[in-house]
Design a protein around this nucleic acid. Structure first.
Length: 422
DNA sequence: TCTGGGGTCCTAGGACCC
DNA sequence: TCTGGGGTCCTAGGACCC
């Protein structure tokens, strides 16, 4: 029988902040989204105050002040590096690993003897904590979905020591009965509402629900979900993740912007960034979609539009991307609309190695490739945006700049920010 | 005043073809 | 008077994940 483990970092972003700032232990801590807009990670103390996932900061002002909650802007450099360290540690402990997200990895434990599993899981918890400072929960079960349920149990009940195994039928039933249906992997807000209306409140109810009804409303993933909850594995471990399908860069502005020049600067910056992402993945894009919207919370005046550009040949050249983005934006820009968010999405990605040559190409591909190589080399060696395009704006400060008013130092990725011990 | 970003997959419906 | 069926491809929208 298959056996999976899910290793889930506890309150990951908060744990990263605490690792370099131990005075945060025991204090309520939240980490905010871009623009310091929403709470996207909360310490247990913050959760206990009723601060919900994704809660807008302006609705929390009173709670944050009254309970002296520590707030941090997202520090992606720090979290990305800490995630890498956790994954490295896991890789030393188990052979088969699927990195599922920045703070979760699935492990295939099928090759381990049953009696060795508890010891291994305990070792994972202590080793990751010792090597990285990050506390993790480990859930074990015969399917990925059940290992997620188990990890939820491990997190909720500290008495379990961070590990919960639901391989055994009786434990599985208890865990499923204690898991609200909305917490099940694959059940989002809509499906939760639908299921609850039919009296399906827990994961156990769902496991026993009518298959036809679930198939009809939730599609093929619904029946897979029922199988997974019953111990029939539908999702194997993906050790070699499939190629990425798209690349996106989008940002919300702190306030609405109608100045065309500023908007073009922002869009140009996103195009540069998107092209850079492509190049690090050694990919090229055949198509770009530019999107622009006003404040989506003002429904009566809401404006949203997209425009698509097809490149003559797949490309990752920044200047081609910028030109494409700005010309597409021409078609969707509206005067006097306060734009709140612009974005660029690249699709139809293909590996650099599979490049098709055009018979009549307006772009000198060799020249472009060496220019991008030089650009990336400078920015890697000397810091992001040391070298960039004038169309992305030269003057500071920029009205469209994302707000990060509470950012901690990049302790592990920036020499100037390295922790000093006196 | 203030409410993120980056992804994936599935499905239904229309266009088109034979 | 009377007007099929099946397959493929594409896209938009909706659902989900962290």
């Amino acid at each position: 029988m298959s056996r999976f483990a899910l290793v889930d970092c506890n309150n990951f972003y908060v744990s990263c902040e605490r690792m370099f700032n131990p005075s945060l232990e025991g204090r309520p801590v939240v980490v905010l989204s871009n623009n310091d807009g929403c709470a996207v990670a909360r310490s247990n103390e913050a959760k206990a105050l009723g601060i919900g996932m994704g809660a807008p900061v302006f609705t929390l002002a009173e709670t944050l002040r009254r309970h002296n909650v520590a707030c941090f802007s997202s520090n992606y450099a720090l979290y990305g590096d800490m995630s890498r360290r956790v994954i490295l540690t896991l890789g030393e402990l188990v052979p088969d690993l699927e990195v599922y997200s920045i703070d979760e990895s699935f492990l295939d434990l099928s090759s381990f003897r049953e009696k060795d599993v508890p010891g291994l899981c305990g070792t994972i918890v202590t080793t990751v904590k010792r090597n990285t400072g990050i506390p993790v929960s480990v859930g074990v079960g015969p399917t990925k979905t059940l290992s997620k349920v188990a990890a939820g149990m491990a997190k909720k009940h500290p008495c379990l020591g961070g590990v919960c195994d639901v391989t055994d039928e009786r434990w599985r039933e208890r865990a499923l009965a204690a898991t609200p249906v909305g917490k099940v992997w694959g059940v989002g807000r809509r499906f939760e509402k639908f299921l609850k209306m039919r009296g399906i409140d827990t994961a156990l109810d769902l496991a026993r629900a009518d298959r036809v009804m679930v198939k009809k409303r939730m599609g093929i993933n619904g029946t897979r979900l029922l199988d997974e909850l019953s111990g029939i594995s539908c999702y194997p471990l993906e050790t070699n993740p499939p190629a990425q399908k798209g690349v996106g860069v989008s940002r919300t502005f702190a306030a609405g912007i109608d100045d065309r020049r500023a908007l073009c600067e922002a869009l140009s910056t996103y195009a540069e960034r998107a092209a850079e992402k492509l190049r690090t993945e050694e990919l090229r894009a055949g198509l770009m979609e530019v999107s622009a919207m006003s404040n989506r919370f003002q429904r009566d005046t809401f404006y949203y539009n997209t425009a698509v550009v097809r490149f003559p040949a797949p490309t990752s050249d920044a200047s081609e991307m910028i030109k494409g983005a700005l010309s597409a934006f021409d078609g969707i820009y509206r005067e006097n609309v306060p734009f709140k968010k612009l974005g660029i999405h690249l699709r139809e990605l293909s590996p650099e190695s599979e490049q098709q040559l055009l018979l009549f190409d307006a772009v000198d591909r060799d020249r472009s490739a060496s220019l991008m190589k030089a650009l990336d080399a400078v920015n890697t060696a000397m810091g992001k945006r040391t070298l960039g395009y004038a169309s992305s704006g030269l003057s500071e400060p920029k009205a469209w700049r994302t707000r990060f008013n509470h950012k901690s130092p990049s302790y592990t990725t920036c020499w100037d920010d390295i922790l000093r011990v006196f």
